[in-house]
Amino acid sequence: MLEIKTGSEGEIVLEGRFDASQVDKAAAEFAKIDSTCIVNFENLSYISSGGLSVLLSTEKRLREKGHNLRLKGLNSHIRELFAYAGLDKVFQID
């Protein structure tokens, strides 16, 4: 199950598992983002290509307006997944 919350200073906080079953719900939430935004992964244990695609489409849309997503708190397994997908070079990851 994935929980998407709004944290301090408007950051998006992800909690749980971002798998294929959560894509529609997450896409609806990420569609509301219209400017540069921090996405906090500290409590996210899992992500698969469905979750990555939501992040990627959001990043594409924001870049067209000169904005982007800034990801933080990725665990080592998720960080490795980003590297396999080449997304460690696409996203700003703190």
Binding site: S48, S49, L52, S53, L56, S57, E59, K60, R63, L81, Y84, A85, G86, L87, K89, V90
Partner: peptide
Amino acid sequence: FDPATPIEKRQPGGLGIHLARSL
């Protein structure tokens, strides 16, 4: 799948099988 594909050229699909192979 080429992980070096720039964001503007990325299309939906294809990533899942690449991840399954990579992992």
